[in-house]
Design a binder for these strands. Structure first.
Lengths: 233, 233
DNA sequence: TGACGAATAAGTCTGACTTTTTCTTGGTGT
DNA sequence: ACACCAAGAAAAAGTCAGACTTATTCGTCA
């Protein structure tokens, strides 16, 4: 899925991106295009393309006579899905997971409220289907199936909100949920309370009850935040 | 500020980016690198770099034997500040302004709540200063000064929230506020009620009252949304 | 229907050249 | 002796042109 080594410059990015976002090159570090090209055994043109991409993500800045300097973390385009993936795969995974969960807790309730107003019949049906799927996979260590329905559930809500900015967070939510399941609590069955909340949320949206949908989503988010606090206090 | 013609490929982007985000090339359109290079009178290497950047923004996809195809809007990296600027400068400016304002209404209340808990004494002082600056420029067509303090105010809150994802939205908020002031109501003085809300919000954060800060921010956001409804119903 | 071959456009590499920015050096004046 | 500025050298990115490779698609023919 990631950069899919689509071309040589993609391979270079798959190596350089994680390294930079992991902080292997501290802010202010200077890289030289030619040296990098040699190190990765690619031509300068290919390396230049890779640098351009890193530059567009605000991970580095390229200046004449000085080289390619790494920018401070505060300037990175942290909403770039690629950057998010790199960081989730690297060292500050916990911090990234936390900030993303806080972001979710801010956005998803509002999105759910909007979804209650704008969701089509088809979207409501999808939502119910996802919720039922979650229930069906909530017992007996069937986390893989549970995860898929959970992701689909939240994605439908974000799409149904009718806001393109919210909709584009579907991938981020998917990454967060996947990361959580795969790396933290892979052994335990999901919290039954959370499952119930999802079912009720689907009902609220179907009923067009924006306030209720918003409140239920807040409870779900609250649970996710507490889960993080338990694992990394 | 934008891409600042930093290099030839930057100039090309300043021309191609707005054109694509404005929908001049409908999704599925095919561009050819060589043809573009000729059109912009640059070498293929420069054009390739530009295409790589557009590709990293998910605006286009480059495939062998077929060319550079424009992706559907739903796949764009709409959180990329550059993409936001391009869209704000283009045709679907109103829609972009609306989705960004909705995004703000979701995030800023939560950010304010967190800021009430985490803001340093220095940040509180800055906040009060900004609020006072807004009051001072709220009468007599001094919108330029008002805008600067408004931007600084919201930026401080987002930074003080302690969440990096929120902090990085400072630029987006700045763009929205600037756009609003410069293109919509440049003649009228700001709503006195909004000014008061900002002052009270600064106080709430200084007092560490998260609930109150959150509620006040919701009211501010509500006002911004209504303003949009009035201008483009 | 499928397989083979031709056409096509992106992808890659190389080498030479330009331009900008920084560092050094040397000279000047106080 | 020190501060300061200007001219030049050096370094690295930036640009270009041309030749070649490779993957993919399309058309043709069996």
């Amino acid at each position: 899925m990631s950069t899919l080594g689509r071309g040589l410059h993609g391979r270079v990015l798959d190596a350089l991106g994680p390294a930079i976002t992991a902080g292997e090159y501290p802010p202010g570090s200077v890289l030289r295009t030619d040296e990098l090209a040699q190190r990765f055994d690619v031509s300068r043109s290919v390396m230049r393309e890779a640098v351009r991409v890193l530059e567009s993500m605000h991970l580095v800045e390229s200046r004449r006579r000085v080289g390619v300097t790494v920018r401070p973390k505060a300037e990175w385009n942290v909403y770039d899905p690629q950057v998010i993936r790199w960081r989730l795969a690297g060292a500050d995974r916990p911090q990234q997971l936390r900030s993303l969960t806080v972001l979710r807790s801010a956005i998803e309730p509002v999105a759910a409220g909007l979804a209650a107003k704008h969701a089509t019949a088809e979207q409501c049906a999808e939502l119910t289907e996802c919720a039922l799927g979650m229930v069906a996979h909530s017992k007996g260590h069937r986390l893989e199936g549970y995860l898929l329905h959970d992701i689909a559930f939240h994605r439908v809500i974000l799409n149904a909100s009718g806001n393109e900015m919210f909709a584009r967070l579907g991938d981020v939510v998917a990454e967060v949920l996947t990361g959580r399941t795969r790396h933290e609590v892979m052994f335990e069955d999901p919290d039954p309370a959370a499952v119930t909340l999802h079912v009720r949320l689907a009902e609220a949206i179907r009923a067009g009850d924006a306030g209720h949908a918003e409140e239920l989503t807040r409870e779900i988010a609250e649970g996710a935040l507490q889960e993080l606090d338990i694992l990394a206090p």
